[in-house]
Design a binder for these strands. Structure first.
Lengths: 240, 240
DNA sequence: GCCCGTCAACTGGTATGATCAGTTGACCTT
DNA sequence: AAGGTCAACTGATCATACCAGTTGACGGGC
């Protein structure tokens, strides 16, 4: 099929370039960015584009801007937020960083059972209905690719039911992080997507308000898929 | 003492105003922002300032900008990242949102024991030394206020030792979120800060690579302080 | 009637150059 | 050596063009 052509604004290009230099350590913490006027000259763009890019770097916690003084590069490991994750997982050369990948899987591994637990504790009639609606979709679908989307919707419904906004926002970022790798998981986690009994039991446990069962069921399920992914990461790391 | 005077750039003011309207639901998901030129007129500022603010909104996942079309407000609960948290905890009127506060405490509660576990599993000689250095500081300090900083440094050392970048970035955001409420915790968690035996045992467990003990010790410790905080939140919510 | 191209009137994106405002450091005075 | 002055940086703001993509009304063709 056709792919949508990518259109990047200038300020986006500038932002990407500076961000990559920072996470790539060519610009280290404490270093000073060239002045806006110099950057214009170096990058051959107008100053507005440079300023927009720097505003975004500031928003991302990568630089500190001071009126009258030079713009300073911050230590992104101490200052940046989760939203930097996508660019730590895949570096500027498109290389996947195994350490980051493992970190993400771990996070998912510990977050998901707790989401299930809190969904059992805090669900409302509306959010429960949404979960059950997702479950009904899972029952009908057999194509792995489409199933993957439905499984994801199921988890999103759980997060909503948990009522925990921090889980919600964290998962948003995690989603954006592995969206580019979506198809990688289609085959890898195929068995998990097709594990209908699990989704049935989990939904039942949540509906019954049985938090411990919801937690344990999910932990078992997620531990399994995590092991699969860890294994693939190890393989990837071993064969450059 | 004196407080440093706050200086906010225009684009920052514009950004704050628009962000508050979005999280405050005056601008709902799907709504269209006024055009940049109209916003200039409404806010009586230069277009550059408006554009810089909108770039930051875009970076934060709050709006979707399309060349030629209107800028659309997104559903921040589905699109935004963790970095929005500070502004969900305290709304534009300075009111603390109890639900968000509880979500944050829960997140901390489930994250911290896992950080300890992974610190036990993955620490290097350097990161372990850093933890022990923090512990030494805790032994010497008795003033609660200064102790609070040292305790925080201790946890940061643990996160570094865990080697998990996702934990690291999440904690960065959580830190920025409760930084404004820092003094609130000074008295509330005073007993926890002074619980030296806990820090001693935890450090020993990590040094010994005993992940389960590290996990359990931390869980007990954090569960206790979480209960304290939950209690205060409940009280706060009951007395408006 | 319906389809399709045209075009004007939006929208955001880029460019230029001027000016305001805070920071820094060399230099001069005391 | 201490302190004040000032020129030369830095970022912040402004005004005004013009480029480029989107939208929808309009009108000719079938």
């Amino acid at each position: 099929m056709f792919e949508s052509v990518r259109k990047q604004s200038l300020s986006e290009v500038v932002f990407d370039q500076l961000r990559d230099r920072i996470v790539g350590q060519q610009l280290k913490a404490g270093d000073e960015l060239p002045s806006e006027r110099v950057l214009c000259e170096l990058l051959q763009v107008n100053r507005g584009a440079v300023r927009e890019a720097i505003k975004r770097l500031q928003q991302a916690g990568l630089v500190k801007v001071r009126h009258g003084g030079a713009t300073q590069v911050l230590d992104y490991r101490r200052e940046a937020g989760l939203e930097l994750l996508p660019h730590l997982l895949v570096d500027e050369h498109g290389t996947l960083q195994a350490d980051t990948a493992r970190s993400i899987v771990r996070m998912r591994q510990i977050l998901t059972p707790n989401i299930a637990r809190e969904a059992a504790n805090h669900h409302s009639p509306e959010t429960l209905a949404q979960i059950q609606h997702c479950l009904a979709g899972l029952r009908r679908e057999h194509d792995t690719k489409r199933l993957q989307y439905l499984v994801f919707d199921f988890w999103e419904a759980l997060v909503d039911a948990s009522g925990n906004i921090v889980y919600r926002l964290s998962l948003n970022t995690l989603r954006k992080t592995y969206e580019p790798l979506w198809e990688l998981f289609t085959q890898l986690l195929s068995d998990d997507f097709h594990d209908l009994p699990f989704f049935e039991e989990l939904t039942a446990a949540i509906a019954a308000g049985d938090a411990d069962t919801a937690f344990n069921l999910t932990q078992t399920h997620i531990d399994h898929s995590s092991e699969l992914i860890f294994h693939v990461i190890d393989q990837y790391e071993a064969t450059p």
